[in-house]
């Protein structure tokens, strides 16, 4: 069954059509990828899915229910979490506090509970801490939990973002260029991590990526877009051999002659 269903999505800014009648779906429990050359509109698709952009047309169904044009926090509550291409951590807060932000939408204690420190409030705080530490441990940086986020090395900051996204207890995790800026070893670890998230946490994954090697290794279903339009879809092999994909990435032969 499809966990995410995008139908005829369209988005334009001031007359510029960024996404054109894009349709694709992500099956529950799969690892899917959205790829395309620079400026193809991949991040715009993510922003539409997560509610940061309001698409002009089309429909997005998540878990069978429409989420088109809903506010981002509501979509996250429905179970869709994301990471950002250029990190968006709460820089002056500790790593643990950063991850705790993810649990916000899964907990409920309000001002009265906070002032009176009621039993349920304290239980909830303990629960938040425990789950966030689990998430940090899962991505392998539990030891860094008390450091200020901005003081971490880049690769670790990325992991804080993943832990933070995992702490929202998502059904679907959207990763925006997770391998950008990582070295070879870190990329290998990333591949492991993506697989573990799916196997151990049962979370479906959709990623945007430039690194073709990584995409081909992990994804079961790849959607290729160019100029906001879908040009191919299929397994790694199918996509690799698709002439339109090759054309989009390498340019037409005529172009090179010219």
């Amino acid at each position: 069954m499809a966990l995410l269903d995008v139908e005829n999505l369209g988005l334009s800014f001031a007359g510029l059509q960024v996404i054109k009648e894009l349709s694709f779906s992500v099956d529950e429990g799969s690892i899917a990828s959205l790829i395309g050359p620079n400026g193809a509109g991949k991040t715009s698709v993510f922003n539409c899915l997560t509610g940061f952009y309001k698409p002009n047309s089309g429909e997005i169904l998540f878990n069978g229910r429409p989420i088109t044009r809903k506010r981002p926090y509501k979509i996250t509550r429905r179970g869709m979490a994301r990471t950002f291409q250029n990190l968006r951590l709460f820089k002056s807060m500790s790593v643990l506090e950063n991850v705790m932000s993810g649990m916000h939408c899964r907990t409920r204690s309000g001002p009265l509970g906070a002032i009176l420190r009621t039993g349920s409030q304290r239980r909830e705080e303990a629960e938040i801490k425990e789950f966030c530490e689990f998430c940090l441990d899962f991505v392998g940086i539990l030891g860094e939990k008390d450091r200020t986020a901005s003081n971490l090395p880049y690769g670790h900051q990325r992991r804080v973002e993943w832990a933070r996204a995992l702490a929202t207890k998502p059904k679907l995790l959207l990763l925006d260029e997770p391998a950008a800026g990582l070295n070879f070893d870190e990329k290998q670890q990333l591949i492991e991590l993506i697989k573990r998230i799916r196997e151990e946490l049962k979370i479906t994954i959709l990623l945007i990526e430039h690194d073709m090697g990584l995409v081909m290794k992990v994804s079961e279903m790849i959607t290729v877009i160019d100029y906001g339009q879908k040009i191919a879809q299929g397994s790694a092999e199918e996509v690799q051999n698709n002439p339109r994909v090759i054309e989009a990435y390498l340019g037409r032969e005529e172009d090179e002659v010219v």
Partner: peptide, 19 residues
């Protein structure tokens, strides 16, 4: 904490499910 998240980065806070 939610106040601090929103103060530091509204968009990231919203993406984390904070209204």
């Amino acid at each position: 904490r939610a106040w601090q998240y929103v103060r530091e980065d509204e968009d990231a806070a919203e993406a984390m499910g904070i209204d």
